[in-house]
Structure formats: structure tokens, C-alpha cells
Nucleic acid binder design. Structure first.
Length: 882
RNA sequence: GGGGGCUUAGCUCAGCUGGUUCAGAGCAUCUGCCUUACAAGCAGAGGGUCACUGGUUCGAACCCAGUAGCCCCCA
């Protein structure tokens, strides 16, 4: 059989994914087994796969595949998120290209376009996840805006409203002038930018006296309704009770005083624009000054501003500076750095704005659901890494009300209904709203008589107001709270997500879980870190520093990319993506592939060779016991969610123990067959390794494992997915270390002295325990090119130590030139130092008094060992120098 | 401004309740090899005042305090 020496993943991956789907391997229905559930963090429906998804979903797939092999009924629910702002922005942009303006469309027309868009592009990201090998139960694919999930959202809104947990109020919100919507605090990103501080004179009426104000936002001056200084600030005491004139608009406003003002910053005087700054807003309320909203919803100047009407806020900033300079009001401009909030979705500068919005009263909510905090703090819900508990705690204890309305069309429309007098009812349909309205407002004449119907709120709900229900709604837990799925799969097991959405999503799912299921939504939260480039910059489309995942998988194989993502990604740490890690993954695939080629190339025989008779049993015991240890270690890593460590343990086992040692021992001489039982042993080990590898690298492991198992039952494929996770075999321990060290020693001496591996060696071992070597002598001969092994004293050849045993190595036909006297002396010095440190400990009475007895015994042992080693080395040294 | 975290080999990270000379891994580096599974490889090697200062202890990378630098979150 001719197999290529280079592994080519492409066809193999496509082939197996199709087989897996055709055989319904990822399907899950409730049964008697223990459930193991993961709900996917739903990617944006119009999104494309980025490196963060790759990391996140690889981890989920590793967990779910292993759970399946552990005999659990593993269910990974996929789906997508309707992502109000992002999707609406994309649809608006698409329409713009077609020459259609959103303003010219009715709500229904716009939504028709949006749905069309969703149908066209909505599945792309899920298809990409299949390329990565994700073993989701695709029949369960959900969408946050599909009818039943939307219904759940509306029902929850109504329910919370009825419980008094939702209210509508005028608040200062973060306004996104590009998206023309309010966004939550969590969606604002603060960036440090270079700004200018403008120094502007506000004159006292009919006087040359003025107050100087420093501001970074001169354009908001049109909405100024006061200026404010610190009452302790001596410089401004003379202005108590006075007024000043706001330039340009020539409005007379009071000078007020408040401790809030920092006398050190700028001139120590703040202009107060209650409509456009949260602090000014609070001061405005406190000092009862008026509020003038000088912006339109798109960030242009409003009628109320009185000047520059319709011009953009940033253009006005420049213009107003110019105009103020001309009129002599602008004294100077100063460069400063300040923090400015940007919209996460549109990257527009956020404009604080007062508007009517719907809120969830979080203080009340938390009072009703204290478990939201307790469950995490008491490790009922585990965070990996646990240090993020602190962040969670801090946020929850300082929680703010959640603004849930968005001025968009794409999303669940808020089920609130208004009459023409501002009376509000909350109900699912217009019909129900009318009924409720008549009940609530019996004294208002029937609407019909006034020729009016109730009108529904124009806004939709925040996307997170649907995703916070995800672990329940994907199992239809709202409509049918007792259905088989929700009873079986909820609470889910693990949630894998990024720390940046801890507040957006994780915390809120915990909230909805306790509110609606009286239970936590998941047991473990694994926070992945953010994928960054080597310069620690976040990978993003706009920076162009992110490789295209599909291209990567094409070049390196999905398995290689998966390994690249998993290497070096402990929970909670950012991963610094480097292509070399993916290369390492690809190289690993190739290594495995070649081991496979080797094993498959062996002809087998029933004739037992001498080597087989003498060494197969001990080799088998050795590799089995090593594998036991590796499996235990891997399992421990999994329990602690240390996936990269688990993979690394397996990587080292396959590469070093299996390939470099085991296969080299078992390899028959060129052209000769291997004993059939030995071949069986090799395949058995190899097969288990492929099972262990499967969660990490599902494709190559599946490809290779099949042919390694002879029991392909009547052509039916025996998928790894349906096999079990290998368990330790309780194999016999073998004392192999000395023999293996001896091999390394011989290779080392060859290397040091520039002797070709083809030159054979004769060695002589001086030991009290020949049994440490004898069972391995054929193996030693094979791996270190040794032609004879004797036991006893020998003065000839190069000297070395294995443990306390003295080794003499003669290379056949090689003249020993220099004596490694210096090396010997170096080693003696080292051991002498070591001995001294141990002796210091052992003569320290306090150590003897305080340390545990077994520790003292260990130190004793170290002492005697070191002493005897030194003796041996000194003897060698003297024999050389004599 | 408030809160949290980090600082261990060139890079990325381990180091579990303090106890194998001041310590490990992978990658990278160096040396020698195309030895018929694999050069995407083989056999070896080198490399660290565990940020700094002080304290607790018989004993500190690990515990405590301070200093410096970096990062994240919130305002």
C-alpha cells in the first residue's frame, strides 16, 4: 500500500464530516444516560468566523466529544443571534448600496429585507463551524428571533413588567448617533484620544468681567444652562449670585457652586449642559437648572440649539471654535488626552442623551434572586479561572439598571401600548392590550369613540434580552416548562465564552436561570481569553491582523488549526496567536501520519524472533504503564479544564514515548516481518492513542484508527465517537529508567566526541543491580548501536554514570584522544556542592525538629547517594590521571 | 478616581497545601546527522539573581509589606 509521506488533511476532513453527519453521530435525545449539555454562545447571524470563534468552538468541541466518549449523552446546541444593532446596520448599508434609504421604508418593508438578508447569509457561520469539525446537534439549531424564542422574550418582558421589575423612564442613556439608538453601558468602549481643551470667556452682563471655562466640547455650549465652580475656590467667590452670558446664543445663565468641580482641572469652572453630559445632568437636577437638548438623534444640531442647525457635531466643534476666536471669546486651545466613549457596534462617538427608555430594575431583581451572586461566590457555579469571580462580584454588587430598549426595527418589538394621552399598557397583542386598557382606565371614554387605537412602542428589545434566556429557550423551557428536553438537559454543564461578555451575557443567564428555573443555567464557565496577535493587539477586521480561519484550515488542516488554538491557551489567558503554533499542529499531524505509515507497512509473521521472545513482554509492560500514567494525567488536566496541558501531555506521549522509544524498539529490521502478536500490541496502543486524541483532532484520529482495528464489523464503520475514552489498564510497573538513561548516555558520548551513529560500541556496566539492565540488553543494543554489554569493572573507554552505576563505553575502531577529565571534575564539584547543602540541612537541629520524618529520611538518602556517586567519580578520575 | 490581576529561560506559559543544590514544558536557538516512517524529521546540547527591596520561617518562586513596570474591568 502506497501512502504519501505528507499528510494531506483536505479530503479526509470533508469525507469524515459527511460520514459523521450521515450517521447522526451528534444527535442527542433524552435517555437513561447522564446528560452533558453545552449551549453554544450564538454567533451573530450575519457574522463570519473569526479567530475568537475558532478558539471558543474548538474548546467546546473538545469537551463535548470527550463527554460523548465518557458515555454521557452529550448535546451541543448550536444557533445564531439576531444581533439587532449589527445586523440592522448591515442591512441599512446593503440597502444604501441599492439606493434605498431606510427612512423611505415602512417597518414591515424593512423587516422583509432584513429577513431576506438573514436567510441568505445567516447560515454561513454555522457552515464554517462544520469545517472546524464542531459536533453540534444541528437538528437543534436555534435562532434568537425565531417565533418561539421571540415569544419567550415577549412573555418574559410582560412577566417582569407585571412583577414590577421593568419600568419606563427618562434617563440619560448612551446614545449611538450612527445606529440612532440607545446602547447599554456595556456596549460603550472608552478609548483614550487626543483632544483639545478650549478656554472660553463667559462675560458677566454689561461688564468686562468674565469667567473662563475650559471644555473639550465647545459645541455643547449651545445647550449650556449654567456654569459651575467649586465653592471653596477663592478665585470665583466674587461671582456668587451673579450670572454670565453664554457666547453665541447670548443666553444669561446662573453661576452655581458645587463640590463636584475639580478646582485643579482646566480653569476650575465647568459649563453645565444637563442634556449632554451625565455629570452635568446630575448637577442640573441637584441645582434645578434647565436642560436644553441641542442635538438631533443623528448627532446634528437641533432646532433647540438655535445655531448651526442641521450641521454635524464635529463640524460644529471646529466652526464654533473659529467663531469664538473671531468674537474674542476663545482664549486658547490646549492639547490634552481624554477618554471618549465609542459604540461597540458602530464605533461612533457616544452622545449622552436624555430619552425615554425601558429599564430592568436590577436592584429589585437582585433582591429577589440573591443566588445570582451567591452561586458564583460559593462555587456552585465554577468560574475558570476563578480569579474572575472578583470581577463578577464587583459588577453585581454595583449593578445598574439595565436599559433594554433599542431604537431599531430588527428585534423583538416591545409589547407596550400607548394611547394618545401617554397611558401605557403592556400586553402581548393589540387585542389583549385593548382589554387590559379598558380594565385599567375605565374612566377614559372607549377608544373607538375617540377614533383612536392604541399604538405599539416603536422600539425593539436589546439583543441580550433574548440571549439571556438562551439556555432555557433553546429547549422550549418557557412555553413548555416541563417538557422532556428542558427537564433532561437543564441545567447545562459547561459554558465556554469570552470574559468580555461576562456582564452582557453570563451574568444575565444566571439571572434568568434563577428567576425562571429556580436553578443555575450551567455548572462551569470556562472563560477563553481574547485572541491577540504577537504584538498583543486584539485581532480585528479593521486592523487586518487576523488570518482568515478558512484559509488557515485550508492550508494547515482543521486538526492542525485546532491544535494551534489549543496550545498555550490556559483558561482566562489571552492567547497570542502565532502561526508557528498552527505549524506545530500540522507537524504533529504529519508525525502521527508517518507513524501510521510505518505500522501499516509492516508485514506480520507467526514466527517469533529472538528479539520478540525476549523483549516484547517487557516493552509492552513498559508502554502500558507509561500510557496509564499519561491517561491519568490527561484526566486530571481535564478535570481542571486545563485543556492545553492535557493536549501537551498527549503530544509528548505520542511523540516521545510512542514514536521515539516504543516504535523504535518494536520496529523490525528493514525488510523483515514483525511477529503478529507484537503488531497487535503496537496497534492496540496506537488505537487507544487515537481515541485519546480524538476530542482534540477528530479528523486524523478517525482516519487512522479504523485501519488499526481489524474488527471492522461487516464494513460498518466503527466511529471513535461511539467508542469509549481509554481507561488505565493497571499494568505492571517496569523499572526502565536506568536502561533508558544508559541509551541516552551512549548516544550522548557519541555526539560529544563526533562519533558516527554507525560506529558500534562495547559497554561495560558496573552495578550492584544487574536486573536493572539485563532485561533490556537487546533493546539497549538496538537503540544505541551496542554490540556487547558486559557487567563488572573495566578501565577502558569513555566513562559515564547512570545513577550510581559506572559505565565504560568503547567505540569500536575509535581511538580515544582526549580524556573527559574536566567533565568528571565538574560533576564532582557539583555533587560536592549538593552534598554540602544536604548536610547543612541535616545538621540543622531546627530542621530535624520541625520537618516531617519522611522528608528527613529523603534527605538522608540524598546524602548517601551523593557520597557514593562522588566516590565512584573520584575513582574514575584517579584511574585516568594515573 | 475605584476595583482586580500580572511580572519565572529569546517567546508563550506550568510550578497544586512553603521542603529534591536558585526551578519545569513547548516553541525558538546551537551542534551533528538526508540513519529507507517522518528534514513538517532524527540524536544531542546550551539557556533563568523566579521584577526590585525588606520581613516571617529551620527552609520562600510560593506567605506578608513596600517599590517599579505592565494589563484588564468599572466610573
Amino acid at each position: 500500500m502506497e501512502i504519501s509521506s505528507k499528510y494531506s488533511p483536505k479530503d479526509i476532513e470533508t469525507k469524515w464530516y459527511k460520514e459523521w453527519l450521515d450517521n447522526n453521530l451528534f444527535k442527542s435525545v433524552p435517555d437513561h444516560r447522564e446528560p452533558y449539555t453545552i449551549v453554544i454562545p450564538p454567533p451573530n447571524v450575519t457574522g463570519v468566523l473569526h479567530m475568537g470563534h475558532m478558539l471558543n468552538n474548538t474548546i467546546q468541541d473538545v469537551l463535548i466529544r470527550r463527554a460523548r466518549m465518557l458515555g454521557k449523552n452529550a448535546c451541543w446546541v448550536p444557533g445564531t443571534d439576531h444581533a439587532s444593532i449589527a445586523t440592522e446596520a448591515k442591512v441599512v448599508a446593503m440597502l444604501k448600496e441599492k439606493g434605498i434609504n431606510k427612512k423611505d421604508l415602512t417597518r414591515d418593508e424593512f423587516l422583509a429585507y432584513a429577513w431576506e438578508w438573514k436567510e441568505k447569509y445567516g447560515g454561513i457561520i454555522l457552515e464554517q463551524l462544520k469545517k472546524l469539525g464542531c459536533s453540534c446537534d444541528w437538528d437543534r439549531t436555534r435562532f434568537t428571533m425565531e417565533p418561539s424564542l421571540s415569544e419567550a422574550v415577549i412573555d418574559v418582558f410582560i412577566d417582569l413588567h407585571n412583577k414590577g421589575l421593568i419600568y419606563r423612564g427618562s434617563r440619560m442613556v448612551n446614545w449611538d448617533p450612527a445606529g440612532k439608538t440607545a446602547v447599554s453601558d456595556e456596549e460603550v468602549i472608552y478609548k483614550e484620544v487626543d483632544s483639545k481643551l478650549y478656554y472660553i470667556k463667559y462675560f458677566v452682563p454689561n461688564s468686562d468681567e468674565f469667567i473662563m471655562v475650559a471644555t473639550t466640547r465647545p459645541e455643547t455650549l449651545l445647550g449650556d444652562t449654567a456654569v459651575c465652580a467649586n465653592p471653596k475656590d477663592e478665585r470665583y467667590k466674587k461671582f456668587i449670585g451673579k450670572t454670565v452670558i453664554v457666547p453665541i446664543v447670548n443666553r444669561e445663565v446662573p453661576v452655581i457652586f458645587d463640590e463636584y468641580v475639580d478646582a485643579e482641572f482646566g480653569t476650575g469652572v465647568l459649563k453645565i449642559t444637563p442634556a449632554h453630559d451625565i455629570n452635568d445632568y446630575n448637577l442640573g437636577i441637584k441645582h434645578k437648572v434647565a436642560s436644553i437638548d441641542c442635538f438631533n438623534e443623528d448627532g446634528t444640531m437641533s432646532e433647540a440649539a438655535g445655531f448651526y442647525i442641521g450641521q454635524d457635531r464635529f463640524a460644529v466643534r471646529k466652526q464654533i471654535a473659529k467663531d469664538l476666536a473671531e468674537s474674542g471669546h476663545l482664549v486658547k486651545e490646549e492639547a490634552i488626552k481624554n477618554k471618549v466613549g465609542y459604540s461597540e457596534r458602530t464605533d461612533a462617538v457616544i452622545e449622552p442623551r436624555i430619552s425615554k427608555q425601558w429599564f430592568v430594575d436590577m436592584k429589585k431583581f437582585m433582591a429577589l434572586n440573591p443566588e445570582v451572586l451567591e452561586s458564583v461566590m460559593s462555587d456552585d457555579i465554577n468560574f475558570y479561572p476563578p480569579k474572575l469571580k472578583n470581577t463578577y462580584n464587583h459588577w453585581i454588587t454595583n449593578i445598574k439598571d439595565w436599559c433594554i430598549s433599542r431604537q431599531l426595527w430588527w428585534g423583538q418589538r416591545i409589547p407596550a401600548w400607548y394611547d394618545d394621552q401617554g397611558n401605557t399598557v403592556v400586553a402581548k397583542t393589540h387585542e389583549e392590550a385593548l382589554q387590559l386598557y379598558r380594565k385599567m382606565f375605565p374612566n377614559i371614554p372607549p377608544l373607538g369613540d375617540r377614533g383612536l387605537l392604541l399604538s405599539q412602542d416603536d422600539d425593539v428589545l436589546d439583543t441580550w434580552f433574548s440571549s439571556w434566556l438562551w439556555p432555557i429557550s433553546v429547549f422550549d423551557g418557557f412555553k413548555n416548562p416541563e417538557n422532556d428536553d428542558i427537564s433532561y438537559y437543564y441545567p447545562t454543564n459547561d459554558l465556554v465564552t469570552a470574559p468580555e461578555i461576562m456582564f452582557f451575557w453570563v451574568a444575565r443567564m444566571i439571572m434568568s436561570g434563577y428567576e425562571y428555573k429556580k436553578q443555575k443555567p450551567f455548572k462551569n464557565v470556562y472563560y477563553t481569553g481574547i485572541v491577540r496577535d504577537k504584538l498583543r493587539r486584539k485581532m480585528s477586521k479593521s486592523l487586518g491582523n487576523s488570518p482568515d480561519p478558512l484559509v488557515l484550515m485550508d492550508e494547515y488542516g482543521a486538526d492542525g488549526v485546532r491544535m494551534g488554538m489549543l496550545l498555550c491557551s490556559p483558561a482566562g489567558n489571552d492567547i497570542l496567536f502565532d502561526i508557528s503554533q498552527v505549524e506545530q499542529g500540522r507537524n504533529f499531524c504529519n508525525k502521527i501520519w508517518n507513524a501510521y505509515r510505518l505500522v501499516m507497512s509492516w508485514e506480520s509473521t507467526s514466527d517469533a524472533s529472538e528479539f520478540y521472545k525476549n523483549y516484547s513482554a517487557i516493552t509492552n509492560d513498559w508502554i502500558e504503564s507509561r500510557l496509564d500514567k499519561a491517561i491519568q494525567e490527561i484526566n486530571e488536566h481535564f478535570e481542571k479544564f486545563r485543556l492545553s496541558d492535557a493536549l501537551m501531555t498527549l503530544y509528548k506521549f505520542i511523540w516521545d514515548d510512542f514514536c521515539s522509544w516504543y516504535l523504535e524498539i518494536m520496529k523490525p529490521p528493514y525488510g523483515q516481518p514483525i511477529h503478529e502478536l507484537a503488531l497487535g500490541d503496537v496497534k492496540s496502543i496506537f488505537e487507544r492513542l487515537m481515541r485519546l486524541l480524538h476530542p482534540f483532532m477528530p479528523f486524523i484520529s478517525e482516519e487512522i484508527r479504523g485501519p488499526l482495528t481489524q474488527n471492522g464489523k461487516n464494513g460498518a464503520i466503527d466511529f471513535i465517537n461511539n467508542t469509549s475514552w481509554p481507561a488505565p489498564t493497571q499494568s505492571k510497573e517496569v523499572e526502565y529508567e536506568n536502561a533508558f538513561e544508559l541509551i541516552t548516555l551512549i548516544r550522548n558520548k557519541r555526539n560529544e566526541n563526533g562519533i558516527s551513529p554507525k560506529v558500534s560500541a562495547k559497554i561495560c556496566v558496573s552495578t550492584q543491580l544487574e536486573t536493572r539492565y539485563r532485561p533490556f540488553d537487546g533493546i539497549i543494543k538496538k537503540l544505541a548501536n551496542v554490540e556487547s554489554i558486559d557487567f563488572g569493572k573495566n578501565d577502558k573507554g569513555l566513562k559515564g554514570l547512570v545513577g550510581k552505576d559506572e559505565i565504560s563505553i568503547e567505540f569500536v575502531g575509535w581511538e580515544m584522544k582526549a580524556i573527559d577529565q574536566l567533565d568528571l571534575q565538574k560533576e564532582i564539584d557539583y555533587l560536592q556542592g549538593f552534598l554540602t547543602s544536604v548536610e547543612v540541612k541535616l545538621t540543622n537541629e531546627k530542621f530535624l525538629a520541625n520537618a516531617k520524618p519522611d522528608l528527613i529520611a529523603k534527605e538522608q538518602q540524598k546524602k548517601t547517594d551523593a557520597e557514593s556517586k562522588i566516590k565512584t567519580l573520584q575513582k574514575q578520575l584517579s584511574s585516568i590521571s594515573s
